[in-house]
Design a protein around this nucleic acid. Sequence first.
DNA 1: CGAATGTTTGATGTTAGTCAAAATATGTGG
DNA 2: CCACATATTTTGACTAACATCAAACATTCG
Lengths: 250, 250
Amino acid sequence: MLPESFVATNFDVAQLRTGCATCSLRELCLPVGLNDQEIEVLAEVTAHKRKVQRGGYLYRAGTKFQSLYAVKSGFLKTCILEEDGRQQVTGFHMTGELLGLDAISTELHTCDAIALEDSEVCEIPFAKLERISSIIPSLMHHFHKIMSREIVRDHDVMLLLGGMKAEERLANFLLNMSRRLAIRGYSETNFNLRMTREEIGSYLGLKLETVSRAFSKLQEEAVISVKNKHIQIHDLQRLKEKMGNSSCTT
Amino acid sequence: MLPESFVATNFDVAQLRTGCATCSLRELCLPVGLNDQEIEVLAEVTAHKRKVQRGGYLYRAGTKFQSLYAVKSGFLKTCILEEDGRQQVTGFHMTGELLGLDAISTELHTCDAIALEDSEVCEIPFAKLERISSIIPSLMHHFHKIMSREIVRDHDVMLLLGGMKAEERLANFLLNMSRRLAIRGYSETNFNLRMTREEIGSYLGLKLETVSRAFSKLQEEAVISVKNKHIQIHDLQRLKEKMGNSSCTT
DNA sequence: CGAATGTTTGATGTTAGTCAAAATATGTGG
DNA sequence: CCACATATTTTGACTAACATCAAACATTCG
């Protein structure tokens, strides 16, 4: 059976030619809220597509920043390699999401972006995007919203890392995946994870063994089924309850 | 004396006239990289000043977003109040820093902003800022850099919360304070903290007792002196060494 | 001054990390 | 397609780090 994402991974030639206007991600990605004419202008900027094989780098920390990338298909992680050799995952990225926002400030990428499955991205030269933003206020505004949303997301992760227990972190993570998949038209209760336990742990501030144990615990409680990377959520409600009650035990 | 609220709704005529152009924060704040003429335009947007007493709210979570705020003087924290009543500090903010970026995405403030000492801010109506950004590309670009820098900062905190031990977190925190104070012309080795142990702990994902113990440990080792909220750093180098070596022990 | 708030320190408990080994899955070349 | 090598996952036993509880002490502010 084909993995879930293959459905989204295929693009057709017509789409390549017409750009954003006919892209299935139009409602998720940068063009949100633009009218047809504005999208035409935007499409000129995003003409360049790039494929990244599973395990390949979209960009590397320390390299010069020139473009943002919108995920067209596939799945990527961003991570920071620390001096001591360990890497910390700072995010997982699905279709329609924008990568590279962190690099605007220094004009150097601050992290590595690595494909966790064969992926395709639209390259968006940032200088061009800014130029067009001056002309299309709604594009500028939407871009600001996207950056802001990234900040909110990071705050949510900070909350998670700062105060939650292992099981709560994992519940959060699973529900986050579930919601994002649902938005993209996939099942919210039945999906394949693209990352290893170690990568999940790195993202959640846990060791891989702890992640594994938390999975096992949720499975014992019949909230989810775990079969290696395949997750089935049996009781969405109960999973949600596990999410928020960090110190409600007192 | 006039009530605070009266002062806050009125603007200082002299200040209005000179605006950003003569503000001592010109090199730290939004006007970075603008020429005199551009600053004139920007100043029209930032005319409105507001004072916030110690303990007072600049804005509250859930209220409508209309303006960003640049800290003109004082010191604030931003924090999220969770359902269970506990609050998590998401940031501490010094002069020249911009608050409210997280609210752009939903047009609602996602956190409370509370003054930790009597503070003054410049109100920057966001719609006006965007309008002017269209006209002044360098302003738009600088604003993007500021948002991006916020994302990088959050990633740094995620790294800290995800992988570091208590003492490392505190060393990071102190050096961060030190650096930011130094940029503003204050001593980098000798300063007063404005927040409680509990607030530090909340920000660092630690309990206040753990923060206190970490302070004591650093003091025993003669790296710093702690006298209540006053910090003196004796050995900046050694403090820096404590910062980065999370799992180098192996 | 006295009450309230904040800080330090000690004793004990809990959680997640570490180390280790077995089990399972994935990928490769024949 | 199989067999092997490699990578990933699970589970158990033990340990380290931090949280919790508690009490004493210090500071702040009306």
